[in-house]
Amino acid sequence: MDKETDILIIDDDKDLVGSMRIVLESKGYHVRIAHESKAGYARIQEKTPDLIILDVMMTSDTEGFDLAFKLRNQPDYEAVPILMVTSFPKHMAEQGPEKFQHIMGEEWPVTKFLEKPIDPEQLLDSIASLLQGD
């Protein structure tokens, strides 16, 4: 596996991040971590990662989405694949309150969704396919 592949995980659940990190590092990925979107954005600015694993609800309910929209609107980062991990299935967002309505009707700003709990194999498969540009 390519040692240089740099993956940034942005998720506030430290235990979950820990287990993802173990799985990813076991396959030789270089993993960086942030526990909220501001810090995550700072990491991205330091160095553009090859892939971002992003949670939805962190400090605010839509933090993950907001960051994803922000990245999609920047030429430097728009091509970075985003794997959104959430225990917040898409249909909940569709029923969600007012604050989610600005998302509805627009393209989801993420490349792929993965529902929690994260199965190690599923995670690795998804990452591999995203990195190959599928």
Partner: peptide
């Protein structure tokens, strides 16, 4: 629950 589940499967699968 999800965190526990993820940790358990990471452990069970030998990572």
């Amino acid at each position: 629950l999800n965190a526990v589940h993820s940790m358990l499967s990471t452990m069970r699968k030998g990572y």
